[in-house]
Design a protein around this nucleic acid. Structure first.
Lengths: 147, 147
DNA sequence: CATAAAGTGTCAGAAAGTGTCAAATTTAAG
DNA sequence: CTTAAATTTGACACTTTCTGACACTTTATG
């Protein structure tokens, strides 16, 4: 599982050091795709294949399905680690997520995300906003207790 | 079950010795997350995995689901004990809970919490305030008798 | 072909994390 | 009350991780 958040720097060539802990869970490389919130999503190989399989099951005759496929696959890249544990994220993808200088790497359980500092700050503010409807999570019924 | 409160010190690297009794109940490590009251919550593995499993079932195409994952996982860590029974709580989390120098470890039944001395004093004062409405617990209907 | 741009590999220093041990303290037992 | 056992703490050494720098290779372009 991927936990925590880390601010790492990007070298002049666009390489990003992935936290050692995350790297160990994705030794055979990762898939990076455009996220849904102006960010990049990073999946392990097996996990991405699972998502791809789900997508493949949706009907090709459905316009929305075709669009979703295009969105995801056309903006994906399969990346591997160099000997220093870095990945080179394609310039196109970095630009889409407005990532430069520093990137925030955010664990979200079964995958992790890459954010620009700026966008991540905004996202965090949103998550912690006490004004926001506190019942907005209720639909998920996350019990803290097993039965 | 986790009972009682313990004031322990933190070493220069941020390691905290967990009371032997608590440790024995979480030999395979713990999950630490941001609490609701400027503190940190600590769960056993099975307990936290239940929460994570619920989250994993929700769909990534749902915006609320993505936000909830971020909120929970980005402020969590999976920790294990070193040979002296200590855990290293990530600096980020310590700062969030204002923990430094000394930490108060508080058992609350099925999990335990980490507090800064200062915040814990305030919390205790609140709990023991003779001025407070003595009927404020009534809504909870805690029977003393099992059936 | 020459040049520039992009991508890769390697290395060393600083910082952070980890392991081990023994002194000090607390708790339990006789 | 004494002694023994267990626990917590501080100290130190060691390892790992991340970063920045530099050099080399590959690819694209005119």
């Amino acid at each position: 599982m991927f936990f925590g958040q880390f601010a790492h720097s990007i070298d002049p060539k666009g390489r990003i050091t992935i936290p050692a802990n995350f790297r160990e869970q994705t030794l055979d490389g990762v898939f990076v795709t455009e996220g849904f919130d102006q960010n990049l999503s990073v999946y392990s190989k097996p996990h991405f294949e699972h998502i791809a399989a789900n997508l493949a099951r949706t009907s090709i005759t459905n316009a929305r399905s075709r669009e979703l496929r295009r969105k995801i696959f056309s903006n994906s890249a399969e990346l591997s680690y160099d000997s220093a544990g870095r990945i080179l994220v394609p310039a196109r993808l970095r630009e889409m997520a407005n990532i430069k200088g520093t990137v925030v790497i955010v664990g979200i359980g079964d995958s992790f995300e890459l954010w620009s500092e700026e966008d991540w700050k905004a996202q965090e503010a949103k998550l912690n906003d006490p004004e926001a409807d506190s019942s907005r999570w209720e639909a998920f019924d996350i019990s803290t207790r097993g039965d």
